[in-house]
Structures are given as structure tokens and as C-alpha cells.
Design a protein around this nucleic acid. Structure first.
Lengths: 381, 381
DNA sequence: CAAGTATATTTGTACGTACTACTAGTATAA
DNA sequence: TTATACTAGTAGTACGTACAAATATACTTG
């Protein structure tokens, strides 16, 4: 029941398993390169504070699985797996899709776009969701590195924060496994990416409200991913370009953990505060948040859009479900998924042909954000 | 003294090597047959007059080379090498999930439930969506039969119609690949299944309205899948049990292709028809349809639930997005997905152990439908 | 400088002990 | 008859020791 390749086992409660996983991680993230000598048994004993027997158990397993080889008197060395085909069950045509979530919001649409195209092309699609958790992301990257995948489509986890798994991505490149990122990307990797111009998106949202005469506009932005920080940038830019002053109180940021509590509470506070002038418009990080805030506004007995205007982002199905259809910014969704699928297949072809994928003239595709006007925004009276 | 035999080593001066060769000889000459228990470690200690450590070294090697397998608490057994094509290979653990749709409605939740559990267990999840198309279903079944999958979770395509792919399912059984069906099933296969008691569900929907004094209740049912036909059955039963007459005009059936047009048109016609008495309540096949019909009712300037009550099915996220929160019937969604994942792993274990999966005492799991009262239904005045 | 030697380091084999986790069969109780 | 509890037996993990065999390096010597 234990292992699948690397770390597939959940409970690594045994000491030798911990040692084993630690060593294997170092192999996978590139700390140990092929033919490099790893720590000696006695060093490992000290490092992990275990007996030599335990260390030997761990190393023995890894040797048997082909990760290491030992030379008596010399040491233990990292094996060179790149040439061996022993993992290859000639299982061809596998694509992995890693997203933060699979069941929520616009992700199902993106995934469907990719899935339908890829399975048309005879590829098999494996899905992994990180729940916006870096540990999960690492686990899946390990899986992809150990098993055979032709390419990977990744939506980065917490893209605004520094990523602890950078080494795994570099290892993907070393193993010549093409990957591309959607929605956001880790800046330091400069990967091929398919994204929306989020800064422009935030600009468009805000500009639309300013055009309609709004001057007191609150912005809610999720700031642990790149989308949120860029959209906020656009929001600021729109104010600046129009020569509008902006109160710091009008920007509310939150992160994944707070998403269902903080924005709602903050808006309740703002709307109930009779001292301050009530804002006339709201820019939302996305439609999901906008829908949450709709309820708050309703409960404050304010009318949309007469009393207050609100703009979403992503044009998710939610935007049309509510009674007041939501003004929002278009997200290509399934179109983006399909494009990602096409591009990753191109990259696979290219990497087969030249062993290097440096023949893509640009390393990104930008979607231009477009405002979709519905009924949640109106002239400020 | 020395055998070239298998291990190729000429000088087997080490003790553990002697033990190893001795055991291996007994396997090769047939003394130990596949799945037969070999001597326990303590017996071997006595036989060869060596320590347990040495015995374990010998056995460990043989296990790694695929000659033996160990079961904690039971003993060490001779492996059956005849079936494994690749002796030393760690086979990946793959599960396929085939659903009609992946991005719509409640399917993402179901899939998430299964995906999160399976990847926790170190399985890799491959997704296939048929778009309710039998040809696609066949294509994916072919893929699963030709490549290596340990188990399959299937939501049947058009489960109310006779299925042209029955042979593929029978082939799964022949190849000893466990599968289970969710939401619905093909009756003729009598597969293991995890479903809602849809008939009871339709009954609960209708009964709730009858209790509130409604007598003129229209039912909309999608009749190309099993869920729809069963829910309709429950709707009829509720009328019969309450001694209510039922006009044939009050039942409206549709199929997948018509789902976004026919029900809407029919309801528009019914509501605009001034000759007939206007119905006071609607039973919907699912929430998706209910939401569609909400718009029709709004456009006819009727109030929910004052003028007309409406009941959905599935308790999807949609039910709480609209301004009038929808009364509906619970669907376990992610819970069902997780349960399906657990059961399929059990089935895989069982099929490995006994080569036949006939040890499941029942061949189905029923979820009891529960009504979730929100604000789209009210007393008939 | 080159060859040989001594030494330290590293992995390999082998022994021992102790306890844990699990299985299967048996005895017991309901 | 059917559960339940117990027990003996089995493999799993983990600590320890000792010495052997191979290797790498520093040192000595001709």
C-alpha cells in the first residue's frame, strides 16, 4: 500500500521513510545531481539522529528503486535516471493539469476547454488540485517528475508569494518536460504563460465606474495571487490617470483564508458607518466576491445599481444567475483552456524535434480584458 | 557449491547469499508454488543457523527481485511471476473517472470529492467526459481497456436508454478491472452503484408541495437518463398516494438536446395561456432547470413563492445564488465522490486478493433524499 | 618524483536485542 | 450460531555492536 514512485505514501511515520523521503526530495529538486556523492551513512545518522541500520534501510530502498547506487569504500551516489527507460511503460500521451481548485468557480470551464481538446487529440488528461497549498503542489510535481508525462499545464499556487518549489520547476526543464502556466505565473521562472492582462482588467473595471461619474470607489483585492495584485495596480492607475484622489481606506486586501469573511465584514462596517460618506461603487477582485457582497448590500437595504454600483471580474456563470445581472470583465475560460492545450501540444512537438523549446518567439499570450456591461452599474447621481 | 542460476554470482560466500540461493532453488524447482507460504523467518534462522537479520537480508533481496512477497502477520509467500510482464516494475496506480460533463453543475463537486481522496491515497486520476454521447463513452472505454487502469468510476451516459456499449463493460469484468457507477446505472449490468433514491426524491419534492396545499403542480423531467424517469415516477406516486388527479398536460418531458429550449417554451406557453387555470407549483428535474424557469416566471411578472412555488433537485451551489433561495433536494455531491473513491479502492483490493469481487454483500449504496426548505415554496392560498 | 604504506573513511556482512503491527486461529461469551 | 476477546505467531521497525572489504587520501621511503 505504501509507495507510488516517490512520496505517494501519505503516512511516512517510520523513521527510515522520513530519511528516504528527505533524500529523494533532494534528488528530485536537483540538490543531488546524477553521479554526485550523497552524504555518507554516518553523516546521515547524525543529520537525522537515527541508527545506521535505519539509514541503510532507507538507502537500500532507494537503491532498489533505482534512485541511488552504492560503491563500497567510496560512498553512495545519485543515479542517472535520464537515460533509463525503466519507468517507461511506453505509456504515451499523458498530460497533467494542475490547478488550485477543480470544482469551484471558473476552473471547471478552463479544465473542460483543455480536456475536450486533449482527449480529441488522443491524450489522456490527469487532474491535480492543490487547494492553493504549496505542499500539495510539491507532491504533484514530484509525481510528474517520477512518472511519465509529456507535458504539464499549471495554474500556479499563491503566485504572488515566493514559491518554495522553484527547484521542481527547474527540474522539469532539465528533464525536458514542457510546461506552461495559466492565469498567473512565477516571475522568476519566466515560463511560457497564458494570462489575462490583469492590470488592464483592473483599469477597465475602474475606468468604467469613473466614466459614470463615480468618485468614491472601494476596491477589494485578493493579494496572495498575482491576479489580485495586478488588478489592484490597474485600479490605482485608473485613479491616477483621471487625477482622482484615493483614500487608503478605499482599498481592502485579503488573502485566500480570509476570502469568505473579511471582505463581507469590511463592507458591512463601511455601509453602516454613518459618519463617512457612503461609497457609490465597488470594484471586486472577482465575480465570486461580488456575489457575496451583493447579499451584504441587499441586507443594508440598498438598491443595485441605483444606490451603489458593483463590477465583478471573470464573467463567470454566476454573473448571470443573480437577479441583477453583473457587470464584469470577460475571462476566456474554456477558450483559455483549449488554447493552453494547443500550446502545450506544440511545445511537446517542439521539444521532441529540437530537444530545446527555445523556438517560441514570445513566451506569453495575453488576453485583452473586455468589459461586459450588464445591470449592476449605473450613472452616479 | 556455486550456482550461476539466476543471480549470476559465482562466489556466494556470504551467508545471506547462501540462504537466498537456497530459497530461490526451491522456487525454481517448484518446491514453493505461487502463493504458497514459505518457511517463516524464525524457521529459516534455525535451518541455516544464522541470525534473523541475515534471513531478512536474503528475503529482502528476493522480494525486491520479485520472487517473493511478504504479508505482515501472515508470512512470506512465493510470488506468482507468470502474470507480471514486467517483473521489477512498480506499476502506477491509475483510476479513471468518466462523467457526462466535467465543468457543469454538480459534477465538479463530485469529481473533487473523488479526486482529493484518490490523490491522498497516491492514485493518479484521469478524467474523461462524454458530453452525454455514447460514441465518446465507447472511445474512453476502449482507452481504459487498452491501457492500464486499476479501476473506473463511471457516470453512465443516457442511462435511461439502451446502451450500445454493454460489451465494453462486460469486457471490463472479464479483464478484472473493477468499476462502479454513480448517479445512475445500466440496469442490465447490475453493477455496483452509488445513487440517490431518485424515485423517493421525486416523491419528496411533490409531497412537500401537496402538503402546502398545492393541487395543480407541473412536473418537468429529463427522460433520457434514469434519474429523470425515476423522479417522474416519484412525482406520480405522490399524486397517487394523496388521491390527487393528475392531468397529462402537467407532465413535461424533455431530453438533453432540448434542455435549454423546450421547458422554457412550454412554461411560457402555460403561463400565458389564460384559458387554463394557472398552476401554483412546479417540480423541476434539477436546480439548473429551476433557475432557468425562474427567469421565465419573473418575466411573466409573477412572484416566487407568492404566486408560484418551485422545487429544484440536487442542492447545487446555484440554489443559493439567486435572490430567492431555492427549495431543493439534497445531493451529497463531493461526499458521493469521496465514497465512490473509497469503494473503488476497496474493490481493487478485493479483486487483487480473490481474483473475484463477489464478496461485496450488497451491490449498491443508496443515499436518502432530504428536502432542503428555502424560500421558493410557500402555502397555496 | 614515483611507488609503496599506513590510516581514515565508507560501505558490506553479521550478530544481538527489543518492541510494534498485523494476522489467523482458538477459546469464550452472548 | 454468532460475535467478541484473546493469544500465538509472523513480519516490520529500530536500536545497538563488531568486524570485513573496498576505497581515497596523506604520508613515507627509495
Amino acid at each position: 500500500m505504501n509507495f507510488v514512485g516517490v512520496s505517494g505514501c501519505i503516512y511516512m511515520q517510520t523513521k527510515y521513510n522520513k530519511v528516504k523521503e528527505a533524500i529523494q526530495s533532494k534528488i528530485l529538486d536537483g540538490t543531488f545531481e546524477p553521479h554526485q556523492k550523497i552524504s555518507s551513512e554516518s553523516e546521515l545518522m547524525k543529520q537525522f539522529n537515527v541508527s545506521r541500520h535505519t539509514v541503510r534501510l532507507a538507502i537500500g530502498d532507494l537503491v532498489n528503486q533505482g534512485w541511488l547506487y552504492r560503491e563500497q569504500g567510496a560512498g553512495t551516489f545519485c543515479a542517472d535516471r535520464s537515460k533509463e527507460e525503466h519507468t517507461g511503460l511506453i505509456q504515451q500521451k499523458n498530460i497533467a493539469i494542475i490547478t488550485t481548485y477543480i470544482s469551484d468557480y471558473i476552473f471547471p470551464s478552463i479544465i473542460r476547454g483543455a480536456e475536450s481538446y486533449l482527449s480529441e487529440q488522443g491524450y489522456q488528461v490527469s487532474l491535480f488540485s492543490t487547494n492553493n497549498n504549496h505542499d500539495m503542489e510539491r507532491k504533484f510535481l514530484e509525481k510528474i517528475l517520477t512518472q511519465h508525462f509529456d507535458g504539464v499545464i499549471i495554474e500556479p499556487t499563491r503566485s504572488a508569494l515566493s514559491n518554495p518549489n522553484i527547484n521542481y520547476y527547474l527540474n522539469l526543464e532539465r528533464q525536458n518536460i514542457p510546461y506552461l502556466m495559466i492565469n498567473a505565473y512565477y516571475d522568476e521562472l519566466e515560463p511560457f504563460r497564458i494570462v489575462i492582462d490583469d492590470e488592464q482588467g483592473g483599469y477597465v473595471q475602474t475606468e468604467h465606474l469613473i466614466e459614470q461619474g463615480h468618485r468614491n470607489i472601494i476596491g477589494f483585492f485578493k493579494t496572495d495571487d498575482m491576479q489580485g495584485t495586478k488588478r489592484m495596480k490597474g485600479y490605482l492607475k485608473a485613479h491616477r490617470m483621471n487625477g482622482l484622489e484615493l483614500s487608503p481606506n478605499n482599498i481592502i486586501t485579503y488573502n485566500t483564508e480570509e476570502k469568505s469573511t473579511k471582505p463581507v465584514e469590511m463592507l458591512e462596517k463601511i455601509l453602516s458607518d454613518t459618519n463617512e460618506e457612503r461609497p457609490t461603487a465597488i470594484v471586486c477582485y472577482n465575480d465570486e466576491l461580488a456575489i457575496n457582497l451583493l447579499d451584504v448590500i441587499r441586507e443594508a437595504n440598498l438598491k443595485i445599481p441605483d444606490d451603489i454600483s458593483i463590477v465583478g471580474f471573470d464573467n463567470s456563470f454566476m454573473a448571470e444567475l443573480t437577479e441583477v445581472k453583473l457587470t464584469t470583465v470577460a475571462h476566456p475560460q474554456s477558450e483559455m483552456g483549449e488554447l493552453a492545450a494547443k500550446v502545450i501540444l506544440d511545445m511537446i512537438e517542439a521539444s521532441k524535434a529540437t530537444q530545446r523549446k527555445e523556438n517560441l518567439e514570445k513566451d506569453y499570450i495575453h488576453f485583452e480584458p473586455k468589459l461586459i456591461k450588464r445591470h449592476s452599474t449605473a450613472e452616479n447621481k
